[in-house]
């Protein structure tokens, strides 16, 4: 009895080790660990994306979501020759409102991310220095980032209000302006308002990522520079900046991704201003307000493509090391 069970045991062990090598067992374990996330990502990211791309090639409308017909590139670009011989171009790619939104988005992203990167580094350098109450300041500087965008947009909306806003009041009292400015409503200042609020809100995030990068730099390198007698400005440009660059590049990628799809801040702060309408704003309008669901889907798809191209180009041009291979 005991003999046979022993035999069974050995046989069983043999069987498992024969059927699955250690490597295969690892792969299988890895698969089971990854599976929940893959399923999740497919449900919340891949499926909506694929659906949107599909809709963009149909004439689906909000009222008949499942009855759309395949229309190829009609939502992107199509032309019709009139009997008079005139050619009319249609579709998103021929829509001036779309190109205005593209230009707004790119301009906003470029300016805001540039300012935030510079300010972020500066703030990070200050926070990296040793002084009393540093922990408190570090926590305090994060507050703008922690406030929900809707709240901060509303708050700034009131501060920038043309009649009762504190900013107009303060500028008038100092004497920098001689009449109240409709910051968020005026076409000339709407983009500036959005930029101010976005910089105020996201610089802390940038600073925090830069700070993490700064703290990776070994302290003794700075001491060596001190002994070498290198001027602090030169130390910054020749030592600090090259060493913090990997972290900075990753931070900038995050910010570009965020800035290119900006929606909430503008939706609350400057709704319907032509000067600040971005790709996200305009595609939402078409999707849900103008009942041009397929058209909006095409714009969403283009937005996705543009962001993908931007980020790919940035990673390629900046030789950003996302895998951490460059670490010492």
């Amino acid at each position: 009895m005991s003999n046979s069970s022993l035999e069974n045991g050995t046989k069983h062990r043999h069987k498992t080790s024969n059927s699955l090598s250690l490597q295969q067992q690892r792969v299988r374990a890895a698969f089971w660990f990854l599976a929940p996330m893959i399923v999740m990502l497919f449900c919340v990211a891949a499926w909506p994306l694929l659906r949107t791309i599909y809709f963009s090639f149909t004439d689906t409308s909000l009222t008949s979501l499942y009855e759309g017909e395949w229309v190829w590139f009609k939502n992107y670009l199509s032309y019709r020759e009139l009997s008079s011989g005139r050619v009319i171009w249609r579709g998103t790619l021929a829509d001036p409102a779309w190109w205005n939104a593209v230009w707004n988005t790119v301009r906003f992203s470029f300016v805001s991310v540039s300012i935030e990167a510079v300010l972020g580094i500066l703030v990070a350098l200050v926070l990296n220095a040793e002084f009393k109450g540093r922990g408190l300041v570090r926590a305090a500087i994060l507050i703008p980032w922690a406030i929900p965008t809707i709240v901060s947009a509303k708050m700034w909306g009131w501060m920038l209000n043309d009649q009762f806003g504190i900013i107009n009041d303060a500028l008038l009292k100092i004497g920098l302006i001689d009449h109240k400015i409709a910051w968020t409503a005026s076409i000339d200042t709407a983009m500036i308002s959005v930029l101010i609020v976005d910089v105020w809100k996201t610089t802390p995030f940038m600073a925090l990522l830069c700070l993490a990068g700064l703290q990776m730099i070994p302290k003794d390198v700075y001491e060596a520079a001190k002994v070498d007698g290198v001027h602090p400005v030169k130390v910054f440009f020749k030592v600090t900046l090259p060493l913090v660059r990997p972290a900075l590049m990753v931070a900038v990628i995050f910010r570009i991704l965020d800035a290119l799809r900006i929606f909430d801040l503008i939706y609350v702060l400057t709704p319907n201003s032509k000067a600040t309408k971005t790709m996200s704003i305009i595609s939402r309008e078409n999707l849900f307000e103008f009942d041009k669901f397929a058209y909006g889907s095409a714009q969403s798809t283009l937005l996705f493509a543009i962001i993908a191209i931007f980020v790919a180009a940035y990673i390629w041009l900046g030789k950003v090391d996302l895998g951490g291979k460059d670490e010492r």
Partner: peptide, 12 residues
Amino acid sequence: AMVFQSYALYPH
């Protein structure tokens, strides 16, 4: 001139 325990070379 100083030689540090952790070398303190400029990594880049």
